[in-house]
Design a protein around this nucleic acid. Sequence first.
DNA 1: AATGAATGAGGGTTCATTCAT
DNA 2: AATGAATGAACCCTCATTCAT
Lengths: 194, 194, 194, 194
Amino acid sequence: MKLREKKAAKKKEEILRSASKIISRRGYDGATMEDIAAELLMTKGALYYYFKNKEELLYQCHVLVLSEAEEKLESIYRENISSIEKMRKAIRFHIEVAITEKETFNLIIKPEMTFSEKHISKVLKQRDDYAGVFDKIIQEGVQSGEFVVKEKKMARMIILGSMNWIQQWYIPGGEKGIDDISKVYAEYLLKMLT
Amino acid sequence: MKLREKKAAKKKEEILRSASKIISRRGYDGATMEDIAAELLMTKGALYYYFKNKEELLYQCHVLVLSEAEEKLESIYRENISSIEKMRKAIRFHIEVAITEKETFNLIIKPEMTFSEKHISKVLKQRDDYAGVFDKIIQEGVQSGEFVVKEKKMARMIILGSMNWIQQWYIPGGEKGIDDISKVYAEYLLKMLT
Amino acid sequence: MKLREKKAAKKKEEILRSASKIISRRGYDGATMEDIAAELLMTKGALYYYFKNKEELLYQCHVLVLSEAEEKLESIYRENISSIEKMRKAIRFHIEVAITEKETFNLIIKPEMTFSEKHISKVLKQRDDYAGVFDKIIQEGVQSGEFVVKEKKMARMIILGSMNWIQQWYIPGGEKGIDDISKVYAEYLLKMLT
Amino acid sequence: MKLREKKAAKKKEEILRSASKIISRRGYDGATMEDIAAELLMTKGALYYYFKNKEELLYQCHVLVLSEAEEKLESIYRENISSIEKMRKAIRFHIEVAITEKETFNLIIKPEMTFSEKHISKVLKQRDDYAGVFDKIIQEGVQSGEFVVKEKKMARMIILGSMNWIQQWYIPGGEKGIDDISKVYAEYLLKMLT
DNA sequence: AATGAATGAGGGTTCATTCAT
DNA sequence: AATGAATGAACCCTCATTCAT
C-alpha cells in the first residue's frame, strides 16, 4: 500500500518536473500533452491517469515548484544573521532558482492567462506567500535600522521584478555567471534599501 | 497610386493597433485572427491581404510600438536637462507605456517563443536599441558625476526589469496610480544609481 | 446578398439531411462529425463553419424534421373531412414518416440523453406541439361523437407509441408494405377510439 | 470448485444487475466500464475477469433480464383464467417491468446498434420468444372467441409498441402511477382486441 | 481474483491559412 | 480590396482494452 502510493507519488513528481521543463521551454500553450508524455517516454493517455487535465497538471507544477522555493526562502529568513545578509542570500537564491529552474519559474508569469477561476486565487495566494518572505526580511531590516524604506511593498516589487527579468537576457555559459549576477544585483538592490 | 499606398499604409497601422490590443489581452496564442479581424469589423481573410501571416502581423506590431517608444525616449535623451532628470522622465515614460499600453508592450516578453528565426534577431536588435537609450543616459550621468555605477549594463537591466514587472501586479483603478508608482520607482531606482 | 444567404441556407439544410441520415443509422454517439462530413464530401472542419458544435447540428436536425412534419399534420387537421378520416390520414402519414424517414425521426427518441439543458425544453416543446395535433383530432372526434374516449392523452400515447415502435421491426421490402401496415394500424387504433 | 463456480456466478449476476442500472441511466455509450465498476466498488480491470468485453457484458444483461421476464410471462399464460384476464395481467406486468426496470428494458430498443453480428440474432430470437407469449395469449383468445383479431401479429406489435413507448414520457412520482396507466392501457388495448 | 498502470485509437473542436469569386 | 467557404493539421481528452504483478 504505502509502497504503491509512494511509487505513484514519485511518478507524479517525475511528470511534474518534466512538464515544467517542457512548459517553460515552449510556453503553456505551446507545450502539448504529447510533448510532455514523450519526454517521459509515456503516451498521452497515461498522463490523464495521473492528472485530470492539462490545467490540473500545470497547477500542480506551480504548487510543487513554489512550495519548495518558499520553504528554502523561509529557512533563510530564520537564519541567525543580519537582515542585510538575509536579503543577500534571498536574492542569490531567487536568482539561482529563476535561472537554473527557469523552466518551472516561468509558470509564475501571467497566471491569469493560464489558470481558470478554479485555481487562480490559490495560485496568486501562493505567489503572495512567496513574496511575503521578502516582505518579512524588509520589515525586519527596517525595524533593526539596517534598511531605510518607506514604500516597502514597492521596494519588494522592484527587487522581485528586476530579478525575474533576468531570464529574459541571461545566456547560460555567457560572460556573466550566476555568481557574478547575484553579487551585482545584491549590491545594487541593497544600495537601494539602505 | 500614391494615394492607394497611403490608404493601405493607414489601414495597416489601424490593423496593427487593434491587433496589439487583442494580442496582449488574450496573449499571442489566445488571440485568433478571427478576434483581430472582428475588432476591425473585417473578415479573417482580409487580414491576409495586408499581412502574409500571423507572425508577420505580430512582428509589425512589435516594430510599430517599439519604434514609436524609442523615438520618444530619444527625444527625452536629447532634452537639455540633467541626467537624473532624464532618467526620471525615462522611467516615468516607460512605466506609462508598459502600463497603459500594456497591450502592446507585452509583445516584448519572451520573443523567442513567438518569433521564428527569421524575425528574432531583428526583434532583439530593436529591443537592444530601445534599452540603449537607457544606457546612454546612465553613461552620461556617470560622466557628469551624477551617477556612480560600475556595472552599467546590470544597472540598466535592473531598472528595466523592475519596471516591466509592474504589469504583473498593476491593477487599473487600484490604490496606486501610475503617477504614484512612477514617483516611487524613480526615487528608489535613482537612489540605486547615485 | 440574398443569393449568398440562400445558398448558405441550402447548404445548411443539405447538411442537416445528411446528418440525420447518419445519426439515425449509427445513433447520436455513433455518428461522428467525420462521418457526417464524409457523406457530404466535406471535411470535418467545414461543418463547424455552419454549426457551432455537434449538439447544435443535431438540434437543428430535430427542428427541421419535426417542423416539416407538424406542418403537414396540421394541414390534415384542417381538411374538411370527418375526424375518423383525419385520424386515418394522420396515422398513415406518421407511419410513413416514421418509416421512410426513420433516419430523422429517431432523433425524437430519448432526447434527454442527447440534448443539454439548453435545448431540451425546446425539443420537448416541439414534440408536444406535434403530438398536440393528434390531441386536437381526438378532441374534435369526441365532440362530434365519432370517438368515445375518456383518457384522451393516454389514447394519444398509445397511438403514437405503437406507431413509433414500427421502426423496430419493419423491414423494407418485406412481406408487409407501408400501405398494408397503415391500413391495419388505422383499423385497429380506430377501433380503440370508437 | 462447485463453490467457486457458484460464487463466480453470483458475482456475475451482481455485476449484471449493476451494469444494467448504469447502462440504462446513461445509455450504452454513455456508461463507461469505469462507471459500472465504480458502482460495484471494483476496478475496471476486474470486470474483464468476468466478461470478455463490454458487448459481452451487455449481452448477458439482456439475457438475464429477458429470460426472467419471459418466465414470469409464461407463468401468467399458464394460469387458469380467461384470455382477457391473461392479457390484462400481461399488460400490467410488461408495463411494470418497462417502467420500474426501465434501466434494463431499454436494452431491447435498437439492438442492431449495440450488438455485433455475433449476438444480434440471439438477441432478436429472445425478443421474439418474449413477444411470442403475447402471441399465444392472443391466439388462445381468438380460439376461445374472446378476441376478434385477424392480423394477430400486428395487434401484438401495437400492444407491445404502445407499452414500450411509455418510458418516453413516464415520470416517476408524476400524476399517473403505474396502476393508473396499466388500467387504462389494458382497457383500451383490450377494446381493440375484442 | 483483482489492481494499478498504460496503451492507442478516435472523437470533438479550434484555427491559421488558402482561394475562387 | 475583401468575403465566404473550406481545408487540414493539431490539440485535448475519453475509454475500451490489456497485462504484469
